[in-house]
Computed example of a mutant assay.
Amino acid sequence: MSKLVAQIPSLANRLAAEARPRLNTFVKYAKVELSPPTPADIPQIRAGISKLISGARAGNWKNVTVREAWLNTLITVEVLCWFYVGECIGKRHIVGYDV
């Protein structure tokens, strides 16, 4: 048991050294992906929404591969599940509201 306790500092240092590159990569991407949109991003957002609407009107959804359709379905189910979980947390009950 004393050998294990003596190895804890070296194991902790090794773990920190191995985790540091992955943590740096996470922080690099988190700064970009998790930041809120700036006013300079609004034209790009408008263009994306108008492209989505024009694509829906033109029937571009018919030209989606099975893989893309499956991924879109999974993302939709995930969003709906998180919405349901948020509702359950908000009302503090699984079914119905406490009036």
Rank of each mutant, 00 (worst) to 15 (best):
M1E: 02
S2N: 02
S2I: 03
L4K: 05
L4A: 09
V5P: 01
V5G: 00
A6E: 09
Q7C: 07
L11G: 00
A12Q: 04
L15C: 11
L15R: 13
A19E: 05
A19P: 00
R20I: 00
R20F: 06
R20P: 01
R20H: 10
P21W: 01
N24S: 13
Y29R: 12
Y29S: 11
V32A: 07
P36E: 04
P39D: 03
A40M: 10
A40N: 08
I42F: 06
Q44I: 06
Q44P: 00
R46I: 10
I49T: 01
L52Q: 12
I53C: 01
A56D: 08
R57K: 13
A58D: 03
A58P: 03
G59N: 11
K62A: 12
N63Y: 13
V64E: 15
V64R: 11
T65F: 09
V66D: 15
W70G: 02
L71P: 00
L71D: 07
N72R: 15
T73S: 11
L74Q: 15
L74V: 14
I75V: 12
V79K: 15
W82Q: 14
W82N: 15
F83E: 13
F83Q: 14
Y84C: 13
E87V: 11
C88F: 02
C88R: 10
I89C: 06
H93S: 14
V95H: 01
V95A: 03
V95E: 06
G96C: 11
G96Y: 04
Y97C: 08
D98K: 10
